[in-house]
Write a protein that binds this DNA or RNA. Structure first.
Length: 215
DNA sequence: AACGCTATCAACCGCTCTCGC
DNA sequence: AGCGAGAGCGGTTGATAGCGT
């Protein structure tokens, strides 16, 4: 009841530039993570959750905004194939991108289920190239792929192959309950804790170091 | 020019996880 | 061990920009 009262008194909706400024200063003063304190001390009448979200998705330093590069798109597709809807994990591999941004990008550009919901009447010219590459991640038309992209794809291919080999040796057979292994949610935590850690600390780390200059 | 429709994305909601007591 | 508070995550919603008719 009390919570509800507090909730209804909280301000909602889009953030104004002046609110952003106040939040930035508060984070500087109280530190990132103390959202309850920030919410209280800022006087913004925003919930701690709301402050956290705004900071994480917009105000945090080194946030990269704007269109996803081809490399980023490719990485998202591949990591999603590997991890499923673990947006924070995927975003963690894309420097400067947020989980919300990756999630939105997936839902609007790459998620076939959603994009097939209604046929697009129009396609913005800037998106034309994106649309044409959907659902064709195994094919790399030579005329559209730069040397950097080839390098990135080669590294990623071998890296993902290694990780999948590792998965198979851990939990073969390849399928469980007639479902592809990687789509089987109960095994995702294993991917997080063991496979990903290993992948990014040994051979995977090397692969990641090779990819990073292109991002 | 006006209207309808769709795509986009910021923000919210509810659930789970983590940590301190 | 159990509980509560706060943080984090993924799914969903709603406002709005912009294109087609």
């Amino acid at each position: 009841m009390k919570d509800k009262e507090v909730k209804t008194r909280m301000k909602r909706g889009f953030w104004k530039p002046e609110e952003d400024l106040i939040l930035k200063n508060c984070v500087k003063t109280h530190g990132e993570g103390n959202w309850a304190t920030i919410s209280e001390k800022s006087g913004l009448m925003r919930s701690g959750k709301s402050c956290r979200l705004r900071w994480k998705n917009y105000l945090r330093p080194n946030i990269k905004r704007g269109m996803m590069s081809e490399d980023e798109k490719d990485l998202i597709i591949r990591l999603h194939k590997l991890l499923g809807n673990r947006w924070s994990l995927i975003a963690g591999r894309l420097p400067g991108r947020t989980d919300n941004e990756v999630k939105n990008f997936w839902n609007t550009h790459l998620n076939n289920k959603r994009s097939c919901r209604g046929k697009r009447k129009h396609v913005k010219s800037k998106e034309a190239n994106t649309q044409s590459t959907q659902g064709k991640m195994q094919e790399y038309p030579a005329e559209t792929v730069s040397n950097q992209e080839v390098a990135t794809k080669t590294v990623l291919d071998s890296w993902i192959e290694e990780m999948q080999d590792f998965n198979c040796s851990l939990l073969s057979p390849l399928t469980m309950n007639n479902m592809p292994f990687l789509e089987d949610e109960p095994f995702i935590p294993i991917l997080d804790d063991i496979v990903l850690l290993e992948a990014f600390t040994s051979t995977g780390k090397e692969a990641w170091n090779e990819i990073q200059p292109f991002l």
